[in-house]
Every structure is written in C-alpha cells, then in structure tokens.
Amino acid sequence: MNKLKTIFILSILFLSVNILFAQKQKDLRINELFLNNVDNLADEYGRHVPWVEIFNSSYNNVNISECYLTNDTTGLAAGVPTSRWYRIPKGDPKTVIPQRSFLIFYLDNMPTYGVFHTNFNPMDSNSTNYVALISSNGRTLIDFFPYKSSLRTATHSYGYQFDFGNKNLDGEIENELSELKYFTPGSQNYPEPMATKSEEISKKDKYGLGLTVISMVVVFAALFLIFVILKLFARMSNKPNPRLKLHSAQKKAKKEEVKNEEKQVSPLVDNGEELAAISMALHYHLNAAHDQESEVITIETPSAHYSPWSQKHFTVKGSPKRR
C-alpha cells in the first residue's frame, strides 16, 4: 500500500513538472518574420539576412534552448529531427527569454556563426513557406508560422500586429498574422503608445462607480468565503465525538431524566429570596462545622535553649556495628 502511494505521488510530481515545463515552452510564439532583408537589421557580422523574432508571451522566464527551429516538419510525427531542424544550443544565457520579451534568430543557414544562426534559410529555392518552433522533446509543435511566398520579395515584415495574445485597438485578442507596418526586431510590434489601464478605466468608468461596485463585490466575496470556512470550522468543532454518540433510546431516556430533574427542582426554588435563604443556611451550617480558632498568629521563642551540644545523640557514641 505504501509503495503504491509512493509511486502515485512520484508520478503526480513527474507529471506536474512535465506539464509545467510544457506550459512554459508553449508560451513561446514566432512573432515577426522578415525575409527580404536588404538594409534592415544586421547580424553581429554586419550581414543582412532573414530574421525571425520569438516572443515569450508569458509572465515567466522561458528557456528556449534545446527547442528546434525549422522549416521542415516532416519528422515531427515520429519525433525524429531532419537535417533542417535547428536545435538551439544550451548554455547561452540569452536563450532564457525574460517575461514578455523577444529573441532574434538569423535564418541564414550558417549555424557555425553562433547560437542564433540557424541551419536553414527560407530564401533557398527548395524552402517551404513556413517556420515552425518545436519543443525540446521533438514531438510537440509549439508554433507554426505560415507565410505567402510573396514575402520573399516583400519590403515589409510579417507577424502579429500587436504581439501574440495582446489586445488590439478594438480590445480583441490578437491571434491573426498580417503584414506589419513597422520593422520591430527585438521589440513590440506596435510601437505607438497604447492607452494605459488607468486611461482605459477613466474613459470607460468616468466616475468610478463601476470599479466601486466590482471591488466591493470582490471584497465581500473574498471575506464571505472566509466566513463560510469559519462557519464550517465552528460546526466541526461543536460536533460531538462520534464515539460518544448516544442511541436514540438513550437520548430519549436522558431527555426525560433532565425533564424530571427540572420538575423536581422547579417547585423548590421559586425565586431569588428563597435561594438566598438557602444559601445563608448552608453558610451557617458549614461554618458551624469548623472549630473556633483564636485567629491570632504569634511567633514564640521556645522556652528551652537549643544547642547541638546538649543533644543526646551528639554526645553519646553510637553502638558499634558488627561487620
């Protein structure tokens, strides 16, 4: 039984760690892609090559190392990487993408140039029209980013207008790819300042009544939940011990006993005066049972002067003991 328990707990732990890990990598998105790079972003060698921007849409750091970037998903079903899968090496601190941040990869088929240079180039003649991000286990497709072949000659980049998962100007969640107005490698795709939360609220709730109602409801809900829990506490703590539960017959008998006692007592003690008289009588009776004390405490010196020299057992030798 204990073994089974241990296995169960370990498997739950293993699963939760796995789920957590998968969830984290799932938050990565291919956010922007630019192929026809002539005079746009230059890599560390000063070359203008196609680039792709990865966005960590979560509020946690996500490590992208060991994931795959590719434009060939044929090996995905079997989990077998093909020669065009670029495994992102681990060890570079930049591969840990901070929350809501971006990372650029150069799609130049020059993996020897560094961690952020892939082993495929979408401008190659035999290239497919998509870029995919695959998880480190080689089986889970994290993101699939299709584009039209016309992007190879386009002078704009392609991606999510307001970054993946963000709200657009209409307040809807952004999840569609489109041509982008600006090139924004390594930063948010909509560079114009958006209204802050505070500005939005002042527009929608000018006098603060909405916020007040919502907040008061939430405060009451939170404290009401605690109230319910405390009520349950009270019930549980007042619950009699099941071992001490009485049978219905016993309960009846006890009730009758109490009733009888009440009947017997009620005619005896009618009012406070009687009670006072009884108490007074008892008081006298109990006091009378004691001896009369002088109630004087004195410290008297003993008449005979005490001295160890005058004690018999100090002066007389003890009788010898036979060994």
């Binding site: 006098y207 009401f224 605690i226």
Partner: peptide, 28 residues
C-alpha cells in the same frame, strides 16, 4: 464569523474616496 463581513462593508470608505477623488480631477 459573521463579523468578518463588517470588515468588508467598511472598505466602502476606500471606494467612496476613490469616486470623490475622480470628481476632483485626480487620475484613476
């Protein structure tokens, strides 16, 4: 436990002052 709800009701002061502050031209 029912006393806990008084603690919720007294938070009305926060939101009443919030509304008044908006009226006086403070930002949210």
């Amino acid at each position: 436990p029912k006393l806990i709800l008084i603690g919720a009701a007294a938070q009305f002061g926060i939101f009443a002052a919030y509304m008044l502050a908006l009226v006086f031209g403070f930002s949210p």
